[in-house]
């Protein structure tokens, strides 16, 4: 049997906009296996970021359940949710979301501070991680002193700080130029291959297609279709050529 790491059951999310109710997710059912690289694709407003937030316990569904590692997320206490965000998931955002008052090194150590890791160990690990993402020489720079690609690298190092089993990446390349975006994708893919981290990425960057194991197309809050990578090989060639 497949090792299911994320499972959603009829997940519905509604937002109240004044007197209107906006149904961002309209009953989403997906299963994601451990070690997979999944891309949630869809135009803006399709609900992919909302789904991303549900899977990452960053928001609560209006209806339905999200299971991670077999745990029903709605039954967790506040403390468990905090521990879940701290240990199990690494988040990467479109706008990096680095704390601009902390250096690259300070950003990477923060989740480890929350995890209660000793100062010596966390400094050591932060240095190792920043080295790995190619920022060994800019460790003590503030985010404002780094380029977009470098900031996203810091975010990736930070996401890996507590050795998570899932990386959630929300449009990680949207603010980056093509080449830098490609480098970021390669870095995430490498983590997926080498460390067996499950990667779930909300994106409409077509460059992400050819590294994904499966692509979940989201439209109007519903799963439109799920494609395996080998089903879309030809498509990628065409679109990729156009895009460069």
């Amino acid at each position: 049997m497949a090792d299911i790491v994320v499972k959603t059951e009829d997940v519905v999310k509604e937002y109240r906009m004044g007197s209107n109710i906006l149904r961002a997710l309209d009953g989403i059912n997906i299963e994601i296996e451990r070690g997979e690289y999944i891309s949630l694709m869809g135009p803006s407003g399709s609900g992919k970021s909302t789904l991303f937030n549900m899977i990452g316990a960053l928001d609560r569904p209006t209806e339905g359940q999200v299971y991670i590692d077999g745990q029903n997320m709605s039954q967790l206490s506040q403390r468990q949710i905090a521990a879940f965000r701290c240990h199990r998931v690494g988040y990467i955002f479109q706008s990096y979301n680095l704390l601009h008052v902390r250096s690259a090194h300070g950003n990477v150590t923060l989740p480890m501070i929350f995890a209660g890791i000793s100062e010596r160990d966390r400094n050591e690990r932060a240095e190792k991680l920043l080295d790995m993402v190619g920022l060994g020489d800019r460790m003590y720079h503030l985010p404002d002193e780094l380029s977009g690609g470098q900031r996203q690298r810091v975010a990736i190092a930070r996401a890996l700080a507590n050795d998570p089993s899932i990386i959630l990446a929300d449009e990680p390349t949207a603010n980056l130029d093509t080449i830098t975006g490609r480098e970021i994708i390669d870095l995430i893919k490498r983590l997926n291959n080498e460390q067996g981290v499950t990667v779930i990425s909300a994106t409409h960057d077509l460059k992400m297609l050819d590294v994904s194991d499966r692509i979940v197309d989201i439209r109007d809050g519903l799963v439109e279709r799920i494609r395996k990578r080998d089903e879309i090989d030809i498509e990628v060639g065409e679109v990729g050529g156009e895009g460069e």
Partner: peptide
Amino acid sequence: MQQRTPIEEQIDLPFVE
């Protein structure tokens, strides 16, 4: 990497931190 272990409780940070 953690596998299917129940989710633990988040710890409190020391005041100094």
